[in-house]
């Protein structure tokens, strides 16, 4: 049986089945349509998609899931270090303790962003859960419903597909296929890192660290990282869908 998940190597977000691709494409289109909300909306949805994709491409193989998370964790950690080094350069003063501490936290943020259960570090998931209890905040309710809907639909389709395909995760697909599939992940992680980096830079400015030009505070608005991610994701998904 042809492994459904690997029939299109370029489609890193979705399984190879056309229905799965269609659902993922639809989810992303919904995200784009509501993109004005920026900050947590696209990021969180993609976190969900990413986790589901990880589960799907690993064929629910525990060892494979752990390996992937380790890979992401390592990548995030070093990216956190790089971003923080940039801050140090700009801020002109920062202790090694803070340098390491915040880098670890940034790396941790990105790791936990993709692990759903521990997503309190970037805050979005827990934040939305807190907010949904407050009546009258239609935006947050809507966000939650849409996240719930898209992730439910994704899991409803992708995970059974992965199971039905009877594959053993990326290990059984061979190294080349595995590399091909996970190569898109750093893009998402980079996006999350940039976002987290921006919010942390505002926090740093507000706490009295400063010295790097105009404020980066842009709540609820599209950023270049979003646009780039949307364009690239749409291209990949559309080409995958048309094949």
């Amino acid at each position: 049986m042809k492994p459904l998940l690997f029939c299109n190597r370029n489609c890193f977000l979705a399984a190879g089945h056309p229905v799965a691709r269609f659902v993922m494409l639809l989810s992303l289109l919904i995200h784009f349509a509501c993109g004005g909300w920026g900050n947590s909306f696209l990021g969180l949805s993609l976190d969900f998609c990413l986790v589901l994709t990880l589960l799907a491409i690993s064929g629910l193989n525990k060892k494979a899931v752990l390996s992937l998370f380790l890979l992401i964790g390592t990548f995030s950690f070093f990216m956190g270090l790089l971003i923080w080094m940039g801050w140090c350069f700009n801020l002109g003063k920062a202790s090694a303790v803070n340098w390491i501490g915040i880098s670890v936290r940034m790396g941790g943020s990105v790791c936990t962003a993709v692990s759903i259960t521990g997503s309190s570090a970037p805050g979005e998931f827990g934040y939305l859960l807190e907010k949904i209890k407050i009546p009258g905040r239609q935006k947050d309710r809507l966000l939650m419903v849409m996240h719930g809907f898209t992730s439910f639909m994704s899991s409803f389709i992708i995970i059974p597909l992965a199971l039905r395909a009877g594959i053993g995760g990326i290990y059984s697909a061979g190294t080349r296929a595995a590399v091909s599939i996970i190569k898109g992940l750093p893009l998402m992680i980079l996006h999350r890192g940039i976002r987290r980096g921006q919010s942390l830079s505002i926090a740093l400015e507000a706490r009295g660290f400063s010295g790097f030009g105009p404020s980066m505070f842009r709540p609820s608005s599209w950023k270049i990282a979003d646009v780039l991610l949307c364009v690239v994701s749409t291209f990949i998904l559309v080409t995958g869908f048309l094949k």
Binding site: S95, V97, N98, I100, G101, I102, V104, R105, S120, A121, P122, G123, G126, Y127, S199, L200, I202, A203, L204, A206, R207, G208, F209
Partner: peptide
């Protein structure tokens, strides 16, 4: 979550003082 940036609560409280 937008404000807390230290690795521990103690470190975070000290960040503003450190910046000053």
């Amino acid at each position: 979550d937008d404000q807390l940036i230290g690795a521990t609560v103690q470190e975070d409280i000290g960040l503003g003082l450190f910046a000053r």
